[in-house]
């Protein structure tokens, strides 16, 4: 670096570092705390940051294993956390895959094909993606209530209805993928077309293989959005075994039945894999977010 450096650089670096450390300490405090709480004995004990007599009781319960207390009594797991996690994963994978398929084909048309009302459709999509599903919850509830009369697995309290409702999140992803397609030179596809490839073949065998990174990003974004979605799932799902993690976790902190320790273990257990996925893919996610954001 040919940067001109001020004389008091060392002093500044150390100030910056100390500010950074103090900030990080504050920001990461909840994480230290929740891990510590998950290792405490009992749900009401308050204690220091490092638990005095650590116990794995909450972890056993979160994993669905009954825990034998010191006095010989057995505590049953309060909630089916692993079932919730599995429900969340099923819904997230299915809805993300569907979103990916629909958004990719749509984005291809918007990026490469010519048709009427293209610009209007794009503008409409951009405005529509600012209307979250939260605003139409009454309609979504009523809609699936009625659909359920004809197609039971799409009715209320079924994971199918939640999966389908999440497809509404697609408008944003169409923009993201379209932006990426536009960065790819179209001369390759034109060459393929001259060789007699149909638009479908040009799309499937030329463009798609070049777009794997953005497809991965969109899948992960949709996956994470679906796992973390709360309002729609909380309205559509009712019975204990059908809840997704986001809806179920709330049960722990009921004022009538406050299970702080059990919640902590369940939170770490279920939050950890999702966090790891996010961090592992953060480079691409960040790229997707900023490029999509700036273009969108």
């Amino acid at each position: 670096m040919a940067m001109v450096q001020p004389r008091n650089l060392k002093y500044r670096v150390w100030t910056a570092r100390i500010v950074m450390w103090l900030f990080l300490l504050m920001i990461l405090f909840p994480f230290f705390m929740i891990i510590s709480v998950s290792l405490r004995t009992g749900n009401f004990a308050t204690g220091s940051l490092i638990p005095e007599n650590p116990s794995l009781e909450h972890w056993y319960l979160a994993l669905g294993i009954p825990w034998e207390n010191a006095d010989g009594s057995i505590t049953q797991p309060p909630f089916p956390v692993l079932t919730w996690l599995w429900n969340s994963i099923k819904v997230a994978i299915t809805s993300s895959a569907l979103i990916l398929i629909l958004a990719t084909t749509g984005a291809y048309a918007f990026a490469r094909l010519r048709f009427r009302f293209k610009q209007q459709m794009l503008t409409a999509m951009m405005i529509l993606q600012m209307f979250p599903a939260v605003l139409a919850l009454v309609a979504i509830y009523s809609l699936f209530d009625q659909i359920g009369d004809y197609i039971p697995w799409l009715g209320l309290d079924r994971l199918g209805s939640v999966t389908l409702a999440y497809l509404g999140g697609m408008a944003l992803h169409i923009w993201l993928i379209k932006g990426y397609f536009e960065t790819i030179d179209s001369s390759l596809e034109e060459a393929a077309a001259i060789d007699g490839a149909t638009p479908w073949q040009a799309f499937r065998f030329v463009l798609l293989p070049l777009s794997v990174p953005i497809l991965a990003v969109v899948f992960i974004l949709a996956f994470i959005a679906s796992i973390a979605e709360y309002p729609v799932a909380s309205v559509l799902l009712q019975s204990m075994d059908n809840l997704t993690l986001a809806v179920g976790s709330r049960q722990y902190l009921n004022p009538q039945n406050y299970l702080w320790g059990d919640f902590a273990a369940a939170a770490v257990l279920s939050g950890f894999p999702i966090t790891i996925i996010f961090l592992a893919c953060q480079r691409w996610i960040v790229g997707g977010l900023t490029s999509g954001g700036v273009k969108g």
């Binding site: 048309a109 094909l113 010519r114 459709m121 529509l128 497809l167």
Partner: peptide
Amino acid sequence: NYRYVYPSLLGVITFIVFPLIY
């Protein structure tokens, strides 16, 4: 050319526009 947009438009209409109108 609409074949490629139709599925996604269908999704947007059914899951965003229709609930809004409803």
